[in-house]
Design a protein around this nucleic acid. Structure first.
Lengths: 148, 148
DNA sequence: GTATTTAGTCAGTCTGTCTGACTATAGTCA
DNA sequence: TGACTATAGTCAGACAGACTGACTAAATAC
């Protein structure tokens, strides 16, 4: 086995194993969202959807939590606003700031994402064994800690 | 706990746990490559680097294996060619085709990536326990299968 | 009251993906 | 053998999503 062959095997063994299930989960979730009436939702939207607070969030906070610039987050906010998932309202605590808030459609989207995620989790546990995901999550959290 | 709060917790528990270590590993690997004399290498290059065969590969095969269009792969090949990591030569079996081959610099890059990956794997096993990665890989492979 | 910092917007740039169209070559079939 | 279809790679343009610098209005610090 040549050195080059052992490289592709080494790479595939881990980087691939982390990326592939993630990509498959993404495709499943966005595919099912499209089928359930949310065809506009894309991967980039997750940087806002996974961090927005129930009471609304500031653009700069969303950007910082997602690790992107406020201009990039503004682009995503604009897109979700055009599709009716979020809206703006002034932040009473700061005349400069606006709060990005979920609309009713946005809240419905969130509820649907939870439902889809739960369904996938149940399916995985049925296929891979009881509490498989809990144990996997525990190991991934340990890995995540070790990589800091 | 509101429904919206439970969403972010559910999402963070898994999607986040798959993405975060992957992003950290990527930053580590590309950071160390830059320090070791390969500053041009970026994440997008991995779609070629992880699949190119030791004897060279056709553009269309690389594209298919990576799941992107041949035009996108051509864009990546061009970038790596400009930086001296790959070169073209005609495919003797087909007058239309060219083989994308690693240069000496490209092979050195590959060897360095293996070294860096091995070092990270050893460090993870030291931190998380003997054979931690083997057991984690096994579970991730199981998950990957379950998601097909 | 002045200087500095912050929130958000605007415009432009870059990367990396896509599509359609094209030319040259290969394969198939009658 | 010629006509037709398919394939390999290139070209040009479009788009999504990331970035930077500059700007205005509001907040904060002194």
């Amino acid at each position: 086995m040549t050195q080059k062959q052992s490289y592709t095997e080494a790479a595939r063994s881990f980087g691939h194993l982390l990326r592939s299930p993630y990509e498959k989960l993404s495709r499943r979730i966005y595919g099912e969202l499209a089928q359930r009436g949310f065809p506009e939702i894309r991967f980039s939207h997750s940087s806002l959807l996974r961090t927005i607070a129930p009471e609304g969030s500031r653009l700069t906070d969303l950007a910082q939590q997602a690790g992107i610039t406020k201009q990039s987050m503004a682009y995503i906010v604009s897109d979700l606003q055009d599709s009716g998932y979020v809206t703006h309202r002034p932040d009473p605590a700061d005349g400069r700031a606006k709060l990005v808030c979920l609309t009713q459609r946005g809240e419905h989207l969130m509820a649907t994402m939870i439902e889809i995620s739960q369904g996938i989790a149940d399916e995985i546990n049925r296929t891979c064994g009881k509490d498989f995901l809990e144990r996997l999550k525990s190991q991934l959290a340990k890995l995540d800690q070790a990589l800091n």
